[in-house]
Design a protein around this nucleic acid. Structure first.
Length: 105
DNA sequence: AGCGTGACGAACT
DNA sequence: TAGTTCGCCACGC
């Protein structure tokens, strides 16, 4: 099983109005290949089943080159879900989603 | 099959 | 605090 499958499966569980980070995903899956996760989401073929717009950097900044309609589209999508975005960054303390369980390998 | 690149992040300097 | 290096994984060439 490839890492990408796990990433998609995990991201698919993120509830509406919540966000997570590349680091959190990597940690949950037991890998440090954060860059790979970025690329995997960039080429997300499962939209909207896999809500990749809910994945942001650890400091709350949005994806630098969002692949589905530009960075502005990601921000729009998040706002529509009620996510607070200040100064181009998501209010993490308020919206971060903690994966309940371990990786599903 | 090997190499460079990238929606990252932590450790160094 | 800011800039650089390194680790890790998938992909295109």
């Amino acid at each position: 099983m490839h890492l990408r499958e796990h990433v998609y499966a995990l991201v698919a569980t993120i509830p509406r109005g919540r966000v997570t980070t590349y680091g959190a995903i990597g940690k949950a899956l037991g890998t440090r290949g954060y860059r790979a996760i970025g690329q995997i989401l960039h080429r997300n073929p499962h939209w909207p089943d896999v809500p990749c717009h809910r994945v942001v950097a650890q400091n709350g900044s949005l994806a630098s080159h969002y692949g589905i309609g530009g960075p502005q589209h990601q921000e729009k999508l998040l706002r529509e879900e009620g996510v607070l975005i200040e100064n181009g960054r998501v209010c993490m303390e308020r919206h971060v989603f903690h994966f309940s369980s371990i990786a599903e390998k």
